[in-house]
Write a protein that binds this DNA or RNA. Structure first.
Lengths: 155, 155
DNA sequence: AAGTGTTATGTTATCACATAACATAAGTAA
DNA sequence: TTACTTATGTTATGTGATAACATAACACTT
C-alpha cells in the first residue's frame, strides 16, 4: 500500500460516510467530503494547514475557516479524529460504531494506528466511576516506536 | 484551600524540587523556580502566555522563550506536566517518583487532577506489549465533570 | 413560485501557542 | 585567566485556531 494510493479503502470509507450522514440527516457537502477524502488518502495524520494546501487543489478559494469548519463537522460525525499530541487529524477507520479512540503514534515512521483495546477502555471506565468522574471524552495517545520500526533500524 | 493561596503545599513542593534538582546536578535557577512557583500556586492549568504574564511581575523582561525554556527544563525534571488537550501546564503534585500521568479535566470548574491509576497503567502496558509497541510517553486525558461539579448544578 | 428560517460558505483580521536564530552573560573546571 | 558549557536576552517568525460579519444555498411552509 503506497501512501496516498489506498483508493479501495478510501472509497469504501467514503461510501460508508455518505450512508451514515444520510441516515443521520447530516449533510456531507462536497467540501466536507473532500476534506474527508484528503484525510482518508493520507497514511499519516495531517495538520489543518496541510489539509488546506491539499484542499486548495480542488477549492482554490479555501482558507483556514474552510478547513476548520469541515473538520468540526467530521469530528462531530465521528468520521475523523483529532490527535491532541500532534495537533493533527486522521480519518477514522471504522466510523460506524462510536468508540473511545486510543492511538499509537510512531515517532519514526509517523504512522498513527488506532489501538481500540476493550480492556483499556474498561479499566479506565471503572477507574473513572470509582472516583465519580463523568467523562465526556477520553484521550489515550501513546508515542513511541511501532513494531516494524523497532525491528528495523537503530534504537 | 483557596485558589492561589496554597502556600503550605507550594513551599513543600518547591523544597522537594530543590532537593531533587540538587541531587541530579540540575540547576533550578531563579527563573525556573519562579515558573514552577507560578504553576504550583495555580489550582488550574496555565497556558504559556498566562505564565508569561505572571512571570513578568518578577522578571519584567520575560518573553515567550523565557517561559518555554523554563518549561522545557521543568518537564524534563518531571516537575511539571503538559496537558495536551489544553495546551497548558500544571505543576506535578508528586515529582519524587516518575509516573505515567493520567489527568481528569473538569470542563466546569476547570480543575485538573492526576488520576494515577495503577490498573490503567498496567492494562495499557500489556496492551502495548501485546502489539509490540515500545512506548516513550503515554498520554491519558479525560475531559468531563468532576464529582463536585456533577453533584452541584445543572447537567 | 415566493417567502422565510436555517445551515453552509466566503472573507478579513486577529488571537493563541511555539520555536528558530543569533547575541550576551553567567557558571564551571582546567 | 582561559576555555568551555550552560543559561538567558532579543528579534523575528512559524504554526495552529477562531472571531466576526457578509453572502449564498438549502429546505420547508404557504
Amino acid at each position: 500500500m503506497k501512501p496516498g494510493s489506498c483508493h479501495t479503502e478510501c472509497q469504501q470509507v467514503l461510501h460508508l460516510a455518505e450512508r451514515l450522514c444520510e441516515g443521520r440527516g447530516a449533510r456531507l457537502t462536497p467540501q466536507r467530503r473532500q476534506v474527508l477524502e484528503i484525510l482518508c488518502a493520507s497514511p499519516k495524520p495531517l495538520g489543518a494547514y496541510d489539509i488546506l494546501d491539499l484542499l486548495k487543489q480542488g477549492v482554490p478559494a479555501a482558507k483556514p475557516p474552510t478547513v476548520y469548519r469541515a473538520l468540526e463537522f467530521l469530528l462531530q460525525q465521528g468520521l475523523v479524529h483529532r490527535i491532541e499530541s500532534l495537533n493533527a487529524y486522521v480519518g477514522c477507520i471504522h466510523p460506524d460504531h462510536p468508540h473511545a479512540s486510543q492511538f499509537l503514534i510512531c515517532r519514526d515512521c509517523g504512522e498513527v494506528r488506532e489501538l481500540e483495546s476493550r480492556s483499556v477502555e474498561r479499566t479506565l471506565g471503572s477507574a473513572l466511576r470509582a472516583c465519580g468522574f463523568k467523562a465526556d471524552s477520553r484521550v489515550v495517545e501513546v508515542t513511541g516506536r511501532c513494531l516494524r520500526c523497532s525491528e528495523q533500524g537503530t534504537p
